[in-house]
């Protein structure tokens, strides 16, 4: 179980991550919104990052930043990813 409760948006993003990357061992509840998605934590890697970039575009119409550092921040956790989706919705 995640340490912190997921918001509905975070939950739907968790489902997107699991579907996109075919994570067979991970349930949506397993993804702690504040835990790192990459490296330790969920253990995603650089190829997953490209896949997630594509999925964000397909499901939320979001284009990532051209700056790698910004993307690193967006992909740091489920919470950050949700913040990105919220921010782009608002604009």
């Amino acid at each position: 179980m995640a340490e912190t409760a997921q918001t509905p948006l975070e939950r739907s993003l968790a489902e997107m991550i699991i579907e996109t990357l075919e994570l067979e061992d991970i349930a949506t509840d397993d993804i702690d919104p504040e835990a790192p998605l990459f490296g330790e934590g969920l253990g995603l890697d650089s190829i997953d990052a490209l896949e997630l970039g594509l999925a964000l575009q397909k499901h939320h119409g979001i284009r990532l930043d051209s700056d790698s550092e910004d993307n690193r921040t967006h992909f740091a956790s489920l919470r950050n990813l949700a913040a990105l989706v919220e921010a782009r919705r608002a604009t």
């Binding site: 650089s46 190829i47 990052a49 490209l50 970039g53 284009r63 990532l64 930043d65 051209s66 700056d67 790698s68 993307n71």
Partner: peptide, 25 residues
């Protein structure tokens, strides 16, 4: 760094790029 397609797009727009050294990933 040019890992992301968006980064490549920015570099292509800003620098005159001769070649992109890439991989199937």
């Amino acid at each position: 760094p040019a890992w992301w397609p968006e980064s490549v797009s920015r570099l292509l727009d800003t620098l005159g790029v001769s070649a992109l050294i890439s991989s199937p990933a």
